[in-house]
Nucleic acid binder design. Sequence first.
DNA 1: AATGTTAATGAAAACCATTTTCAATAAGGT
DNA 2: ACCTTATTGAAAATGGTTTTCATTAACATT
Lengths: 162, 162
Amino acid sequence: MNKGENFHPVWWRNHLRGYGYRITIARQAILDVLSKTEDHLSAEDIFFAVYKKHPNIGLTTVYRTLELFVQMGLIYKFDFGDGRSRYELMGGPKGKEHHHHLVCTECGRVVDYTDFIDDELELLRRTEKELSKKYNFEIKGHLIQFYGLCESCRKKKEKIIE
Amino acid sequence: MNKGENFHPVWWRNHLRGYGYRITIARQAILDVLSKTEDHLSAEDIFFAVYKKHPNIGLTTVYRTLELFVQMGLIYKFDFGDGRSRYELMGGPKGKEHHHHLVCTECGRVVDYTDFIDDELELLRRTEKELSKKYNFEIKGHLIQFYGLCESCRKKKEKIIE
DNA sequence: AATGTTAATGAAAACCATTTTCAATAAGGT
DNA sequence: ACCTTATTGAAAATGGTTTTCATTAACATT
Ligand SMILES: [Mn+2]
Ligand SMILES: [Mn+2]
Ligand SMILES: [Zn+2]
Ligand SMILES: [Zn+2]
């Protein structure tokens, strides 16, 4: 079986239908792209990836579909500070579990990390609890990102200084 | 002494001069606005606040000045997901200490919190250390935000359901 | 398999926060 | 006062995203 090729289409179809949406070529193609990549793609990235097989699908549809999938909870939408949103598959067969990000401020590289230190989740839970009590907030989620310099960017800077 | 009125101008002047920049009316006015508010203002918010006393200062200058202050480390720039950047004073006499945010996804309300930050800081340091070792990142900073529903938005939703 | 209803789509235009351009102005050293 | 040049305001440009609107295609019904 061609790895990733039309990966578990049944799952998407059920997921879509379950929400009362129609199953279209564009939606399947976009999910297909997202299910095959390890990267954090922008709308335009996805548009170009889809374009290879479906040059008739427009960027507008990509935006609309991504918005829909975010609302459905199928994908995550992130902002890493480079002026465009980036998307990542959430649940499903190839979906990633909850994780946080490490972002290089120089080249934009993004690293997922899921190997939380044991206490991290514990502290998060505790913080959420205390915050919701103190500020009367019903906390639904969190965003945690670390910013810095990746290895290659650090080396480049060292060379310049020498 | 009029509270906040031209608060410690000497401090700004030194801070600016220390970086070799000229002290202009626009820059002082913008710092003045930021030093008087507890809110997280957008560039436009700041423009309007400045406009009251200085209707000749343009939005372009506000953007340029904010960008400069961010580079100088005088202010923070945040993105709370409503499509515009928001700014907050960093150091100085009225500047806030490092803190994280609680954001209402319904009305956009933003709450600063500095509580529990001791535990958090400790854990953060440890996490940063582990991450920088494992992924060869030189970590420079972090972004932590909790998302949820503020009290009034929660109550509104409850009423609708009833 | 044909039909009807209506969600979904593509192309173009609009939107809107932010940036760039460029000639005019003013900060601060002499 | 004068000079140099950083800073400024107005207008135009930019670029990611959204809206508009006429056309197309999903899919339930026949
Ligand atoms: Mn990720
Ligand atoms: Mn704040
Ligand atoms: Zn890098
Ligand atoms: Zn709210």
